[in-house]
C-alpha cells in the first residue's frame, strides 16, 4: 500500500530513467521504503536513477546511509546515479563522506 503511494508520488518514469524525489523521507527509518523501491526499479532494468533533492533541506546520517544503500545497489547492477538540485551544504557533506565519488551531481 505504502510502497504504491510512494511510487506514485516519488517516482517518475521516462524510458529507462527513474526520478526519485528524496523529500524528507530520507532522514527517518521510513526512508528504507525509498531504498527498497529504488532497488526494485534497478533490478527491473533501470539504467539511470535521478535523485531529486529540490524538496530536501538537510540530510542527516540516516539519509546518507539510505543513499549509500541506493548507490551500492546501483553499482552492483551497473546503473548510473544522478543527484540533482543539491544545496551547497549537502554537496560539501557528500564530498566529505565520499558520495560524490559514486554519483554525478547535476
Amino acid at each position: 500500500m505504502i510502497a504504491e503511494n510512494l511510487s506514485e508520488s516519488s517516482f517518475e518514469n521516462s524510458s529507462n530513467t527513474f526520478v526519485v524525489h528524496a523529500g524528507d523521507y530520507l532522514n527517518k527509518l521510513s526512508g528504507e521504503k525509498i531504498e527498497r523501491e529504488c532497488k526494485i526499479r534497478l533490478e527491473q532494468g533501470c539504467k539511470e536513477l535521478v535523485v531529486d533533492f529540490s524538496q530536501t533541506e538537510i540530510i542527516n546520517s540516516i539519509g546518507i546511509s539510505i543513499l549509500l544503500g541506493v548507490i551500492d545497489s546501483a553499482e552492483n547492477l551497473g546503473a548510473k546515479i544522478i543527484f540533482s538540485d543539491l544545496n551547497a551544504e549537502s554537496i560539501e557533506l557528500f564530498e566529505m563522506l565520499g558520495l560524490t565519488k559514486h554519483v554525478t551531481i547535476a
Binding site: L29, I64, L68, G98, L99
Partner: peptide
C-alpha cells in the same frame, strides 16, 4: 529491532560507510 537498524544507519551515515 528498530533501534538496532537505526543504529546501523547512523554509523554508516556518520562516516560514509558502504555496508
Amino acid at each position: 529491532q528498530e533501534t538496532i537498524r537505526t543504529s546501523l544507519h547512523l554509523i554508516s551515515g556518520a562516516l560514509g560507510i558502504m555496508r
